[in-house]
């Protein structure tokens, strides 16, 4: 076993998890968020089932506020992988005109992401959903199982998780229950980047620095991805800066960082030398310390 490197062991573990779920679940799906973790997840899934395409669809929960480059990339990857792509948007939310500028990040995320995700799982009756979450992202994730059970109402009960021993995963569940499965649980941010580099995995160009139009707001750099929908506050000015993104989500909620790192090694170098943790670029996490745990109990992935 010592012959294997840490990345080989992490990859083998993730492949094993993918295959277990496909062997035991009735109707699995992969939640595809288009970010770098999703890119790795998709790559490992393709390896797990090669030469077959992964025997489940990609599901993208679309808030309609993603970066344009993400939509382009999504179509390309669905085509390359030969997998079916299911895009779900909460139409009630659209009808109510829910958006980050008008309703703020909390309401927008809840209606267009959390609620939409539950809708997508219910409509298609998926009983297992792969996600790219990692335990190192945030404290409440550190104790989540790789197979994480949700009640029929999609709630997570951190006090009532099944013990997970060795590589034996218990995928049995009652009618209506579902499982979130996290094959990359034991990867760190550095592992993800290193693997992308080593395996030459395509990622959305927004991860690399380029001159982009941005506005500074609440200490964050917001990229003006869709000028027609951008709401400028008084005194704000659109300026062009060399920026890149460490994490991708809805463009009005995702902060860019000023950077000249245009290649993968440069990005990794910056990541290693940086002094703030990854999720800081996401407005969603700027709440109380235990907020992610609360969100998860309510059904946020």
């Amino acid at each position: 076993m010592t012959d294997l490197t840490h990345l080989q062991r992490l990859e083998a573990e993730a492949i094993h998890i993918f295959r277990e779920v496909v062997a035991e679940a009735d109707n699995p799906a992969m939640l595809y968020s288009i970010g770098k973790d999703s890119a790795v997840l998709l790559h490992v899934a393709r390896k797990a089932f090669y030469p077959s395409p992964p025997p489940f669809p990609l599901v993208h929960v679309d808030t309609t506020w993603k970066f344009k480059a993400m939509y382009d990339f999504r179509e390309r990857m669905a085509h390359e992988s030969g997998m079916k792509l299911i895009v779900h948007t909460n139409q009630e939310g659209v009808a109510q005109g829910i958006g980050p500028f008008t309703h703020g990040s909390g309401v927008h995320t809840d209606i267009m992401k959390t609620v939409a995700l539950k809708q997508a799982l219910d409509i298609h009756k998926f009983d297992a959903a792969f996600g790219g979450a990692r335990r190192d992202e945030e404290k409440s994730r550190a104790k989540e199982r790789i197979f994480s059970f949700r009640t029929a109402a999609h709630r997570w009960d951190p006090k009532n998780q099944r013990p997970e021993l060795w590589t034996l995963y218990n995928a049995r569940k009652a009618q209506g229950e579902s499982i979130r499965v996290f094959p990359l649980s034991n990867w760190t941010e550095l592992d993800i980047w290193q693997y992308i580099y080593l395996e030459d995995i395509p990622i959305v160009p927004l991860y690399f620095a380029a001159p982009r139009p941005v506005v500074e707001r609440d200490g964050m750099l917001i990229m003006v991805d869709d000028p027609a929908r951008m709401r400028l506050h008084e005194g704000e000015e659109i300026v062009e800066k060399s920026v890149r993104f460490r994490t991708l989500g809805c463009w009005p909620l995702t902060g860019a960082i000023e950077s000249e790192a245009a290649t993968l090694p440069d990005v990794i170098r910056e990541m290693l030398l940086t002094t703030t943790s990854e999720r800081q670029g996401r407005m969603i996490d700027h709440d109380a310390a235990a907020s992610m745990e609360k969100k998860k109990q309510e059904g946020y992935f």
Binding site: S140, A142, K143, P158, K159, N186, A290, E293
Partner: peptide
Amino acid sequence: GLAAEREQGITIDVAYR
């Protein structure tokens, strides 16, 4: 990690670091 544990001042499950 978890909020409940922080209040009790003890960890109650397995966490991975």
